[in-house]
Computed example of a mutant assay.
Amino acid sequence: MSVQANEEAPSGEAELAGLIADSQELTGLIGEVRSRLAGRWAGEPSLLARMCAHALTPPGKLFRPILLLESALAVGGDPRWALPAAVGAESGHVASLVHDDIIDGDDTRRGRPAVHAAFGVGDAIVAADALIFDLFAGLAECHAEGAPAERVVAALAVVSRCGVDLCRGQSLETEFCAGGRFDHETYLHMVRLKTAALFRAACECGALLAGGDLRHVRALGRYAEHLGVAFQIRDDLLPYTGSAAEVGKPDTSDVRNGRLTLPVIIAHQASGAAGRAVIEAALSGSGDPATARADLLDVLRGTGALTATADWARRYLRFALTALHALPISASRARLGGYAEAAIGRDR
């Protein structure tokens, strides 16, 4: 389940960019994140450097670095103390995508060859591992930027826990899909572990490094967890509401991998025996993935599962926005709310 409504839902990317542009300080910080990412592996004539640069290029929306830096601002701290961690957050996120593409057998990422497709599976695993270690290097560098050592240690603990949660979520997904249990409670638990973990790490880490008090750190953690769930639910819709060109990866990936995403679970619960048979056959991996996707899409539409899934995403979006009420009123708090709304309206 790579971290990836109706069919005409607008992208939130322009809205996200507009929110960042409202803050000259944040605009400068994100520009520096981009610059540091571009130079992170530059000048090293090695296969590892080429693979890591390939994985990081083209840069995505930098959503997790944005959340990390905005969380630092939202608690009234100095975001420069957290700047290296923001760079590391993107490295960690990209590492998870490299691993996802290998597990899912997807040869395209962000509209170009995935790392394993370009360099081979074994070397791609090494590149992803290097990017994970670069995440921890970024945390350590925060001390040189001014973050107190005890804050760096606290942030390290948060990121480590969230990293283990991500792995738990990935493993649970394998069990969940193999067991064929169309159970939304297990799905939600899995999503909280796998997808929401990196959101939680970014927000709590930014708040901790910038000197936020525990109450505000916890509020940002709740915001991030609900946002992560909403984000993944919205991501589950993309293979059925957009093209591969729009999404940036094959739109048959979920079907080919027999993935039990929320729209599929809802459709299975709402279907009779005939509809359930179609769903189970589509996810069996025994036929052409494009045909299976088309058959599955007919059931999703017929049961109203796409609309119901979009409603679930909006529900968790509301939970995320409510969690922000515990923070002091500020432009950063308002932008955090805007980011959540923009992310749920995205088409990629």
Rank of each mutant, 00 (worst) to 15 (best):
L166T: 15
R293D: 00
L327V: 04
D104H: 06
A281R: 11
G111C: 07
A267Y: 02
A147D: 10
E13Q: 14
S91R: 10
L97Y: 05
V153F: 00
A42P: 00
A127M: 03
S11T: 05
P59V: 08
A85C: 14
S243M: 03
V115T: 12
A331R: 14
S286H: 13
A230F: 12
D106F: 08
G337N: 00
G111Q: 05
T174Q: 02
M1T: 07
A201E: 11
Q170V: 09
N257M: 03
G105Y: 08
A270Q: 02
R151N: 05
V94P: 01
A127W: 00
S243R: 03
V247Q: 04
W41N: 12
T195P: 00
P59Y: 01
A207S: 00
E185K: 12
Q170Y: 08
A157L: 14
L19N: 13
G242N: 04
S286D: 09
V229R: 00
D22W: 09
V152S: 11
Y240N: 02
W81F: 13
A140L: 13
R215T: 04
I279Y: 10
V159N: 02
R64G: 01
G221H: 03
L260V: 07
H143L: 12
G180P: 02
P250A: 02
R222Y: 07
A244M: 04
I30L: 15
Q24W: 08
P45H: 06
T27P: 01
T322A: 10
F133R: 14
T303R: 10
T307E: 13
D347H: 07
C177S: 05
L300E: 08
R218M: 04
G180Q: 05
A245I: 02
R34K: 10
G206K: 07
G76I: 11
H216K: 04
I30Y: 04
E15A: 15
Y187T: 07
P263G: 06
P65V: 02
R222E: 11
Y316E: 02
A294Y: 15
D254M: 06
T307Q: 09
G76V: 08
